[in-house]
Design a protein around this nucleic acid. Structure first.
Length: 427
RNA sequence: GGGGGGUUUCCCGAGCGGUCAAAGGGGUCAGACUGUAAAUCUGAUGGCUAUUGCCUUCGCAGGUUCGAAUCCUGCACCCCCCA
């Protein structure tokens, strides 16, 4: 049995526990069953979910059994914790679809085929759906003193804000999550719940409920909420959240997100998200202090996480795309390769005969691609040396594009400035 | 109800009969520098064509004038003051 507690400690992943004195020994004594919950509000997990998910992974690797619970039932209610406003409810159909695709993503991170400690995925909708309202009130609600519930931060915060308010539905959320813990304890022998520090109230509610209903002692452990040094949320960009599904966030963009993590945050990210051991993290810290321009930390972080989420092939794709996006001139590619590398890049189809004869003027090409708002804009961009054809700078505003300029069967690659690309397809 | 001020190009904001596609700042876009960072510096920033122009734009609609963002009339919206 590995000392998971010590590991979480040096990684800075322990915010609060329900039993600081004994939890470490308790975890060392035997294999335990641990659970964390995931809200199926979308059809994909995002970077924000990566933390609890990787926590479960660490527990599993240390010899414990992880349970991931997707909140098919609780998702219908909406957790008020950390939310300032009443949430919109999801339909049952949406939830079912979301849960299905989230399952697939989890299989990449947790091991579901390793005997005793195999991960288990459950959906609380399965045991909540047949609960009658009366039964729930008698068996569960009876054990909740309202004054205790009102004292929870998640409730108190909302009630203090006079304009926010809170519905009875959201107020009841806590009971559902608490009951999850009881259910998992009874049917899966689960004894420890982990979550972000905003889950503390819900976790302790479950522990209280289990003591009353089952007379068992359960445990809770929370990890700090991850924020960047500038105070903003991890995993958000101007363009929106970074998702784990390749359909929503391509492996390239996922990889790039981590490559661009600031120096101030990268060490924390390495500790919290990757499997690198303490020595490795510290040597990367050292490398960053001495040779910051090499950015080994960011590179390593991006590699580890892209591999974890998108696998070896996803990482290769991301790195290949990175090479091309930052530097290399592009030589012959196939349409298929090009489509893969430039999957995030807007493309436009034009009739192939535009390339015949004198060809297509470079200014028109940039205008049509959307990289320039007008031909005049395109002209200026070229004169400013800010345009590239297949990653080679365009020098001449009179340049005409012909079939010879195609980089693959049908396409050529235009670029403006350092990062803005567009594909023109001639069909 | 009476009096006054305003509405300018993506935003703020100058202009008050020709030299106005319209100062300046911000933003944005490029370039240099660099670590795919930050800061800094440089250039560009209505459209079409070219280096000669043409077209569209200064709340909306008319008018005066050789000529208007600039003057006049009406309309719309905003702000302030007095009732």
């Amino acid at each position: 049995m590995q000392d998971i507690f010590a590991e979480l400690s040096w990684r800075g992943l322990i915010h609060q526990t329900t039993d600081d004195a004994n939890l470490q020994a308790w975890l060392m004594a035997q294999s335990r069953t641990v659970y964390a919950g995931f809200d199926p509000t979308a059809d994909s997990l995002h970077v924000g979910h990566l933390l609890p998910l990787s926590m479960l992974r660490r527990f599993q690797r240390a010899g414990h059994k992880p349970i991931a619970i997707v909140g098919g039932a609780t998702g219908m209610i909406g957790d008020p914790s950390g939310k300032s406003k009443e949430r919109n409810l999801l339909t049952r159909e949406q939830l079912i679809a979301n849960v299905e695709s989230i399952e697939v993503q989890m299989r990449g991170v947790l091991d579901f085929e390793c005997g005793q400690t195999s991960a288990v995925l459950v959906n609380n909708f399965d045991w909540m759906q047949n609960f009658s309202y009366l039964d729930f009130l008698r068996d569960v609600g009876k054990n909740f003193p309202v004054n205790v519930m009102l004292a929870k931060d998640s409730v108190k915060g909302r009630l203090e804000k006079t304009d926010a308010g809170m519905s009875y539905t959201e107020f009841s959320y806590m009971l559902l999550q608490a009951y999850d813990f009881v259910h998992l304890s009874k049917h899966h022998g689960c004894e420890l719940q982990i979550g972000g520090s905003d889950q503390w109230g819900n976790i302790t509610a479950g522990i209280d409920l289990a003591r009353r209903m089952l007379s068992v002692q359960l445990y809770g452990l929370t990890c700090p909420l991850l924020t960047k040094s500038d105070g903003t949320k991890m995993g958000k960009t101007e363009a929106g959240a970074i998702w784990l599904s390749p359909e929503r966030t391509s492996p390239y963009r996922f990889y790039q997100y981590w490559i661009n993590v600031g120096d101030d945050d990268v060490s924390n990210c390495l500790r919290v998200f990757t499997d690198l051991n303490q020595d490795d993290v510290e040597s990367l810290d050292k490398s960053r202090a001495e040779e910051p321009h090499k950015r080994e930390s960011q590179r390593r972080l991006a590699e580890e996480l892209t591999k974890l989420v998108h696998g070896d092939s996803g990482l290769q794709r991301a790195q290949r795309a990175t090479q091309i996006f930052f530097g290399q001139e592009i030589d012959q590619l196939s349409d298929a390769e090009l489509g893969e590398i430039f999957e995030d890049v807007p493309s436009k189809e034009l009739p192939r005969d535009r390339l015949s004869g004198d060809g297509l003027g470079i200014l028109d090409a940039f205008h049509e691609s959307g990289l320039a708002s007008s031909k005049g804009d395109a002209r200026r961009a070229v004169q400013e040396k800010g345009t590239y054809l297949n990653n080679a700078r365009v020098e001449d505003i009179g340049r005409n594009l012909t079939v010879d300029d195609l980089i693959s069967e049908t396409s050529l690659v235009l670029r403006r400035g350092k990062k803005k690309y567009a594909i023109l397809r001639f069909v």
